[in-house]
């Protein structure tokens, strides 16, 4: 018998009737999802901005890029990023075009711009997916990750998200809840170990 069948046979011999409990219902009730999101993410050194229009989100994004004197920026091809006004002094890499050079570009980029499919208020988490035009390295290799997230993407927590999503998964789905960090040296927090040092979320209405 092959290893697979041996393992499964052994387990089948001792299996018993026991059913899963019904799914846990979220017992959270935040008066304002955005406020909770901001509180949770800033508590772990993430940065949250809230603006009342997409135009304001674009302005803020470009203002942040200027402030950090970014020269190379990688941009995912996902709504609302294609319409972000480009700044003249910045070299952009648009994901989905020339993907052969994407990796090298990401490794030397100053910032990566993405959107997010959903966000969890409870834990200050944004949910990113892979797919055409959506790079996983764009939110990982550059020292700064800026996510433009519509406020309507907010849901309460993991439970409300799990109850609502359609089970169609991309190859890669990431729950991101702050800047990369470690506490492996004397339990002292240090940010920006392997991933971004700065994680900036712009929530727009």
């Amino acid at each position: 018998m092959n290893p697979r069948d041996e393992i499964l046979n052994r387990l089948q011999q001792v299996q018993r009737d026991e059913t899963l409990p019904p799914p846990w219902q979220s017992r959270r009730d935040f008066p304002e999802l955005a406020a909770r999101f901001r509180q949770a993410l800033t508590a772990v050194k993430g940065e949250v901005h809230q603006v009342d229009s997409l135009a304001a989100a674009y302005d803020l994004t470009n203002q942040l890029l200027r402030q950090m004197a970014a020269e190379k920026v990688v941009v995912n091809d996902e709504r609302p990023l294609p319409n972000l006004p480009r700044l003249p002094h910045i070299t952009y890499h648009q994901v989905g075009q020339e993907d052969e050079t994407l990796r090298a570009f990401c490794a030397s980029a100053d910032a990566g711009l993405t959107s997010a499919d959903a966000a969890l208020a409870e834990t200050g988490t944004v949910i990113l997916t892979s797919g055409p035009g959506k790079s996983r390295l764009a939110s990982l290799l550059p020292p700064v990750h800026i996510a433009l997230v519509p406020i309507t993407a907010l849901t309460t927590d993991l439970f409300t998200w799990a109850a609502s999503f359609n089970r169609q998964l991309p190859a890669n789905l990431n729950f991101i809840s702050g800047p990369s960090k470690t506490a492996d040296i004397e339990q002292t927090m240090a940010v920006g170990v392997h991933g971004p040092k700065r994680f900036i979320v712009i929530l727009y209405a």
Binding site: A40, V44, V95, G96, D99, L102, R103, L120, E122, T123, G124, T125, S130, G131, P132, G133, K134, S135, R136, L137, L158, L169, P170, A171, N172, L173, N174, F175, I176, S177, G178, P179, S180, K181, A183, G195
Partner: peptide, 24 residues
């Protein structure tokens, strides 16, 4: 484990990169 509400990265992997994925 660490007293975090959620770890910084929770990564869900469902297969290798798909046809038009730029990386992975």
């Amino acid at each position: 484990a660490t007293g975090q509400p959620m770890s910084i990265y929770t990564t869900a992997i469902t297969g290798p990169r798909r046809a038009n994925d730029p990386d992975g």
